[in-house]
């Protein structure tokens, strides 16, 4: 009696894995196949066969020697600039956000100005910052940092402001010091909003990484793509577009893994608030 049952369950398990695998990979496979097949005989200049794009991909980005390939010379500097600017914005946004969010007067004082800066579409800051910083690496990092700062800063302010007053009272009643209050109460309590801001900032950061290189640069992923387009190297350009997409997807996967770790309590908490009381 106990013999066949696990076998049946194992069979069902394999079936389930197959099914979910099919669900995850099915549509992408269909779409890619369609692209492959539909463009295969294409002689259109703008629309080269996927076969050609894939064929040039490795050579374009990972050509030998590897140390001189575009991946090392262009992609990695781009991503490093993004991470540097994003990191600066993250630290500055959270520090300023906690400071501003903790004081009602400071918040009222700063909010209209901050809202204005947040509302400026970040790309228009590129020409302005070029005046001060030229077209070098520092300009690009500052462009990314200033663009990413506002969503992080304003969401942090919002999160700190929305902290439960009962929790604040509890922290005070147990005489938590300033450092412990910020660490255990303010930052953790505001973390859902901080993460929301950081997510918005990440996609703005990627946009700015590319734009800052399209304006003026001598290396970088965005620079390479524009160069391919201007020199009508269309399959290479397409391969760059795809690579940029992959970079975006990878960054968002990393982001999600980090936030899931930071906010694991929040998901359960939210669920209990919804289902329970």
């Amino acid at each position: 009696m106990s013999g066949p049952a696990p076998a049946v369950r194992a069979g069902a398990g394999v079936g389930r894995v197959l099914r979910s695998g099919l669900l995850v990979l099915g549509l992408p496979a269909v779409l890619l196949t369609a692209w492959w097949v539909l463009t295969d005989g294409s002689t259109s200049y703008f629309n080269p066969p996927l076969r050609t794009i894939v064929g040039t991909f490795g050579e374009t980005w990972f050509g030998s020697p590897f140390a001189e390939s575009r991946f090392v010379q262009d992609v990695i500097p781009s991503v490093l600039r993004l991470l540097a600017g994003y990191g600066i914005a993250l630290v500055a946004g959270i520090v300023l956000g906690v400071a501003i969010g903790s004081s009602r007067a400071l918040r009222a004082y700063a909010e209209p100005v901050l809202e204005f800066f947040r509302a400026i579409p970040p790309p228009v800051m590129v020409p302005i910052l070029m005046l001060f910083l030229g077209i070098g690496t520092s300009m690009k990092i500052v462009v990314i940092a200033t663009g990413c700062l506002w969503p992080i800063l304003l969401n942090t302010v919002e999160g700190v402001r929305g902290l439960d007053p009962v929790l604040r009272d509890t922290a005070r009643a147990y005489r938590l010091g300033r450092v412990a209050t910020v660490r255990h109460l303010v930052l953790r309590g505001a973390s859902p909003q901080i993460v929301t801001g950081a997510r918005q900032a990440l996609s703005i950061g990627i946009i700015l990484m590319v734009i800052s290189e399209m304006f003026a640069a001598k290396d970088g992923l965005g620079f390479s793509i524009v160069q391919f387009q201007r020199s009508f190297a269309i399959p290479e350009m397409w391969s760059g577009v795809i690579l940029l997409g992959v970079v975006g997807v990878l960054l968002s996967l990393v982001f999600r893994a980090v936030t899931n770790a930071v906010l694991s309590w929040y998901l359960g908490y939210r669920q209990s608030q919804h289902g329970g009381a």
């Binding site: 779409l31 996609s203 793509i225 975006g248 968002s252």
Partner: peptide, 24 residues
């Protein structure tokens, strides 16, 4: 269920990647 993975993949693709394509 079928579209979930595709949406998750396409969503973070930065729109500015399309600039050269759009110009073409």
């Amino acid at each position: 269920a079928v579209t979930a993975s595709t949406i998750e993949f396409l969503r973070p693709v930065p729109s500015v990647a399309l600039i050269p394509v759009a110009i073409l």
